[in-house]
Structures are given as structure tokens and as C-alpha cells.
Design a protein around this nucleic acid. Sequence first.
DNA 1: CAATATCGGACCATGTTGGTCCTATTCTGC
DNA 2: GCAGAATAGGACCAACATGGTCCGATATTG
Lengths: 151, 151
Amino acid sequence: MLRITRQADYGIVLLTQFARSNGRVYSARELAISSHVPLPMVGKILKLLVQADILASHRGMHGGYTLARGPQEITVGAIIEALDGPVAITDCTGNLPAECGIEKSCPVSHAWQRINAAIVGALERVTLAEMTCPVGDPVTAFTGLRAESKP
Amino acid sequence: MLRITRQADYGIVLLTQFARSNGRVYSARELAISSHVPLPMVGKILKLLVQADILASHRGMHGGYTLARGPQEITVGAIIEALDGPVAITDCTGNLPAECGIEKSCPVSHAWQRINAAIVGALERVTLAEMTCPVGDPVTAFTGLRAESKP
DNA sequence: CAATATCGGACCATGTTGGTCCTATTCTGC
DNA sequence: GCAGAATAGGACCAACATGGTCCGATATTG
């Protein structure tokens, strides 16, 4: 199917909420209610995002989470990597020691690395800020063609 | 993890063998031996590829499989779609009726469609013929930047 | 007619994912 | 100082999809 996990999907939705209301502190409970994602799941996701230095946490009463960096500096690729692990479309993409056994005789491993790099690139090019604005020009970055329409 | 299934991975490996020896007829047994993929699995994969009109089958004694089209006309995207189903990085990519329930309030569905299109594009741009040659220039298509380095 | 190969199912085991729960820790407010 | 509220960090379980196997039917060749 080639799809991201639901965790990553939820994570993007939650993070856009942070990005839209700049600097606000959200508690896990608030996010669960507004995003219709079950509360324990929200906690699990936010936890991983804190470990990845995408969110900052504040404990205690009136605590909660805030973005650790600006929405422009957080890429979709980083979010997916934080929640789903490294993006590797096949086992033989060089990230981990290839264990397919036919590594040497496999003539396509090199090609896969290129394809994987293209997908990772497409994910890294999109920032959280670009995901947040519903429609518009900024998303032209998705196609891989950098917005060059600045005369 | 964002990875293709092992079926699709095997499928690519098997198809490159067809592409390298142009027009030859391979039986499932031959392919299983040379590719080190278990025979029943090979049969299952070839079956799906026949249904997708990527392979043509020839029954009876001395039967086997051949490419239904030229290696230049078979894209990696088509192979993955045949073996893993449609490429949809999230549920809300428009291919199927979105059932996430928050479809309307979800501000990122539009952005996801763009990202998905970029990935599908990267997969469609690579043909089986390009996967076959081990290294070289033809794979510059992977980056999404069409080879324009011809002065 | 017999041998060989694909074809089209059903079928099961396993691993990952999705989701829950519980306890410890830390901070605020009285 | 103490109670309440929130996160931190585990372990834990169930459902689903995937990986993999097997069997009978059918078609083609010799």
C-alpha cells in the first residue's frame, strides 16, 4: 500500500494545530478533544515528538506542549521519521546493514537508493508551515520545483 | 516505516531478470531458483503481474512468462500498484471515499494529495529498463529533475 | 493420453500497528 | 507544605495485514 502509519497521520494533524495558533500551550486533553483522536493515543504521539525535539513539554498544572522550533523549520519528513522511524522504501536502501542475502547479486539496490532519496526529498521539502495554510501558492514546493516565481 | 511490501520488492527483482534477457520465456521454477525467492511466492507474484498486463503467460509444457510490454513502457509505479495496490500515503488522498470522519475539519488533506502526487510521480518516472542497468546516467530521472545537463 | 506448466482459489502463521492502562514525576495553586 | 493536575515512561493486549503455503482445475505440448 505504501502508506504512512496512522500515528504519523495523527501527528501531522496535531502539529498543524500548534502551527496555526502560534506559541500557544496545548494540553494533551485539549488536543484530543479538538482533533477527535483518542486521548491515550495523543499522549503517545506527543511523547515521541518531544523526544524528537519537535515539541517542548511543560509539566505540572497548566502545563502542556509547545512547538520546539518554528513551523518553517519542521519538515514533514522529520515528523514521519519521528513517529514511524526512518523512511526506507526497501530493506536495501543503505540505512541498515542489508540482510537480503542476495545483496551482491541484486542489481537494483542502487536504483532503489535513488528512488528512496527522491521520496525523502519530497518529504523534506514540505514544512509544517506549508501544511498549515489550507490552499495557496506556498505548496508549489511539493512538486520538487522550488518556487522561483519571484522576479 | 513507509516501505513497499516484500511482494513488490520481489516483483521488481523478478522483472529485471526478464528485462535483461530480452524476450526470453521464464518458468516460475527457473525464476525461483535464480532469484532465491520461494517458488509459491514467485507464482503468486507472477499471477498478479499477469492480471496487471505487465507479464504475458504461456501455459502448457515449455510454458512460462514473458514481458507483455517493452521494459521502457513499464514503470516502477505500475509494478508497485499491481502488487501492493494503489499508492496512497494517507487515507485521505482522494482515491477512496475518505472515511476519517473529520474530512471537512481536516485542513491537511489537500496538502497530502500534493505530497502523494509527488511520490507517485517519482515512481512513475522510473521505468523497468532504467532499473535494469546497474549504474549510469539514465537514472538521473530519479531526482525529479529531468536530465537537462546537456549543454 | 500423459506430462508439465500456469491459473485461481482458500488457507494459516506471524509480525507490526493501533490502542489502552498504570505508576512515577514534576509543577502550580492554595 | 500539601493536594491537584498534567506529563513521562513503561508494559501490555487485540486486530489486522502481510508473508508464505497448498491444492485442485485447466490448458498445452509431445
